[in-house]
């Protein structure tokens, strides 16, 4: 279970996610900052809902925003085309 891949872009597995929660992460952003899960090319489109569910299972609901704040760009765009 620990080597189950959660964030494909950054290659972050379950074990690392659970360790981050153990170390005090209570939010998707907290897990992201500790592990880089969700920091990759797709910006957490796939893994952040999964992270949110893992967090809910391990520590229950929390008041912090459930996934990261949406921010431009909507999808990757070349700098020259901005």
């Amino acid at each position: 279970m620990d080597d189950l891949l959660i964030c494909r872009c950054e290659g972050v597995c379950m074990g690392l996610i659970l360790k981050a929660i153990d170390e005090g992460s209570t939010s998707v952003q907290g897990v992201k900052k500790r592990t880089r899960a969700g920091m990759g090319y797709c910006q957490g489109r796939t893994c952040q809902p999964i992270l949110r569910d893992i967090l809910q299972k391990s520590i229950g609901q929390n008041e912090i925003e459930q996934t990261q704040k949406a921010q431009a760009p909507v999808r990757p765009i070349p700098l020259g085309k901005l």
Partner: peptide, 16 residues
């Protein structure tokens, strides 16, 4: 950024 490093023209922005 592109003016300083022209090769960045085709590099993808993923987040701000």
């Amino acid at each position: 950024a592109i003016a300083a490093f022209p090769c960045l023209q085709h590099v993808n922005l993923i987040r701000s």
